[in-house]
Amino acid sequence: MPSDINPVTPPRRKIRPRPVHRGKFALRMMAWVGLAFLHFPLLVIIVYAFSTADKSYVFPPPGYTLQWFAVAWQREDVWRALTLSVQVGVFATLIALILGSLMAMALARRKFFGSSSLNLMMVLPIALPGIVTGIALRSAFNSMAIEYSIYTIIIGHATFCVVVVYNNAVARLRRISPNLLEASADLGATAWQTWRYIVMPQLASALLAGGLLAFALSFDEVIVTTFTAGQQTTLPIWMLGELFRPRQKPVTNVVAVCVLIMTFIPIIIAYWFTREDSQVKN
């Protein structure tokens, strides 16, 4: 804006061209430092997975080898832990999908007495420290004399996975135009038909994304799991054991890389399916 429009009140301070690119350069540097801090460690573990060192975490690695992948592949305990984690993840995700989408349909377009409390109740399992949820479930199982098993793990996981499905589903439901629902009703569709042919096709990819995120959350969860598992070892519990009492460090490195890749894939797919929902939210 030219400053000579109003000559009576001159600007207090002389306007000089702002050093735009210098400011931007410093900003860009700081931003990339932040990103590097986040991602550099992830690259490091990949290097370590190929290291020939088997007793220490020495850097740089003395040599590179593929043999630890073969060794890890043969490990029974890793496979058992992986299988249990997948089983728990699948069942917890299924329960979360059912409960989360029901909640989303109930709350997406309604506001009633207690609806915000319901919302809070769903968020609490992940908002409160995991140790609170964990020990609460443990004392409940104890006082009801329920034996720890895969089912107690699933119950714990499903409880904190619901909110992930709910968030995705509710964001999508709110984007569905009410006109579509009215049009469907005007054309004589029953509630079920509207749901089946209008809502469901649009909701499906949000549910898929929510399900994938719920699975990733469950697959990775360790705190609640330590309280709700008896002798069962999920992959994170196995990993936790290795953190304190490493048996074969290179095997742990390999498993770490595999877990990282296994969790990245569902997250990227989920992100792809919901990229528009999050833009609307912003």
Partner: peptide
Amino acid sequence: PLWSSYLVRLYIWKL
């Protein structure tokens, strides 16, 4: 990184 394994990332920091 938020969604990727907490324990794996912790393990990396140990390294």
